[in-house]
Design a protein around this nucleic acid. Structure first.
Lengths: 318, 318
DNA sequence: ACGTCCGTTGAAAACGTTTTCAAGAAAGTA
DNA sequence: TACTTTCTTGAAAACGTTTTCAACGGACGT
């Protein structure tokens, strides 16, 4: 009897007791499929991500999970996505199983995902053209501005020979970060900034480090596409006897927890990714609870330079 | 018409075409709730975890997600669990929404979770008493043996003054690791091993490091409950001018990706956590596909010492 | 040409809930 | 006492699928 479980209308006290006793004796748990088939709500949030590995995503998940749990929502996660076709099948499999969707697809433009419009969706760190933002929320952060800021900081420290270790091919955020690097150098009138192929993992940084070691003259400032890349770079350079930050300054991107605990501590660009995870779920909750609210989010959060110990004035090398 | 979408029986070719065209024109996607209500299968795997933060869990998730995706299963994740009551409500909310369940509950014994027996369940790194293993699969790893192995390695390097930075209170795996430490010291006849309160995060290691710095005589070998703790310890000791491994050797636990990229590289105990994630999902898939197979898994995987550069012979200090 | 069998197809039952509908009982009012 | 209103409760409809059932038509064999 659904009335007693959900307190939906008045029931005689003796009957209520009998039903409750029977329910707990049988270990009765309502079937959520039947429930959400009828009620058209599932109590879940879907997260479509490119990966789940690394601290960037684990922080994002942690933020999302915290507020989801507080509101008794579960998280449905689908990851490991490179191609648009994989995205589409994931979208299908998630559709109608959740009440809201968070999509982080730095490699794919959302219209290729053919998402249905009838489910609240928040895009995070995903390239959404202005004309496609009508029905959806968009949370981004200033990738290009971050690198630009970092370059400017290094310029002020006297650096003139720059190198950028790029992120993965085809990823929108990586491209933006590289763009910020080029723009900042252009503004400063520096023409010989080097961009090296890289990626988002330690190994990519280590590989780039070996190329940097062979360069002559060697750059005095290296920016990496993210913290893991920077950390791999740092370790490899140190292993080759290079003094960081004495000879080379390094700046990462993301400010993952580990960045604070390298030796020396990594100077990096802080992205509030855990807070973004929280905010994204909160946003979905709002849209679920007030479906007729027409206002949509479209924010680009600032990225803050977190100065630690892998950056120093260039004076010593000149 | 379900017959054409699922190829369940012969249909005239012209009708099939017409149905398919109509379906794609309307953007028809079958409602998964209605589907699984009837078919009693959902195409999802549930993961009940204590957290999702940090590389340990992100590696575990990556492994699980890889094989789940290859088999077109989605992952339903419920985390942030401290208390048994939270676990129970999560179990309820996941029940019937997934075809299999992975439970990692180092803080709770499974019988307090009142899990239903009718869904395949794999316990990972969870204390399951022998008598409760009849219907479930259990994958563990040798926590005690790991620390024991590490202590023995350090003993061979000549270390005699040991310190252990413990994990979180109440966690089964942390207790096992501490037990291994005590046992190994007892076997060696060393009575003055120090156990410090700690935790699973960088900060816990850093805090413990400050206590170690005040100790006199200072230990020459420090084991940490996990890698993050060890890394926090390492950074803090280095910051205080302590030479690692010259003055103090450090060994972590888990072998998360970052452990390879500290400076110096962290000696640690390798837990194949990504493979465990894969194996757990594979196990569930097997049990879903062959429900009548009575054999149950009950394995304790070995933990391997991964020697890097935070450990050295004690000679110099004697 | 007639009977049988197989391939095809439409209708209906089932899955486990919630919600609606209507009926019945109890209580209050004239 | 009779009528109306409110409270309670059982039955039935609905949600969107899959599967089963039965019927229909055609093809094949005798």
């Amino acid at each position: 009897m659904s009335r007693v479980l959900n307190n939906t209308c008045a029931v005689a006290e003796d009957k209520r007791l009998r039903v409750e006793k029977a329910a707990s004796a049988l270990g009765y748990v309502p079937n959520p499929n039947a429930r959400s088939l009828l009620m058209k709500s599932t109590g879940g949030m879907g997260m479509l991500l490119p990966h789940v590995s690394g601290e960037f995503f684990s922080e994002f998940l942690t933020g999302a999970d915290n507020v989801a749990k507080d509101n008794d929502f579960f998280l449905l996660i689908s990851a490991s996505h490179g191609k648009a076709s994989e995205w589409r099948s994931s979208v299908q499999s998630v559709y109608r199983r959740v009440d809201g969707l968070i999509v982080m697809a730095p490699q794919v433009t959302p219209k290729r995902l053919n998402l249905s419009q009838d489910i609240p969706t928040v895009f995070v760190n995903t390239p959404v053209p202005e004309r496609d933002r009508s029905g959806v929320d968009v949370i981004g952060f200033d990738n290009a501005g971050g690198t630009r800021q970092a370059v400017e900081y290094l310029l002020n420290l006297g650096h003139r020979r720059f190198c950028y270790v790029a992120g993965p091919e085809g990823a929108f955020d990586a491209a933006e970060r590289a763009k910020g690097f080029r723009e900042a150098l252009d503004s400063a009138g520096i023409r010989d900034g080097v961009i090296l192929a890289g990626g988002y993992n330690h190994e990519d940084g280590a590989l780039a480090a070996r190329k940097i070691l062979e360069m002559d003259p060697r750059p005095t400032a290296v920016l990496a596409a993210n913290d893991y890349c920077a950390l791999g770079l740092l370790t490899e350079l140190q292993g080759a006897g290079v003094d960081v930050p004495g000879e080379v300054s390094i700046i990462g991107f993301d400010n993952v927890p580990s960045a604070a605990f390298s030796a020396p501590g990594l100077t990096t660009l802080g992205v509030p990714i855990r807070e973004i995870g929280e905010k994204a779920i909160e946003r979905l909750l709002h849209r679920i609870r007030r479906p007729d609210d027409p206002v949509r989010l479209s924010v680009e959060l600032p990225v803050n330079l977190v100065v630690r110990d892998t950056t120093a004035p260039v004076l010593r090398q000149q």
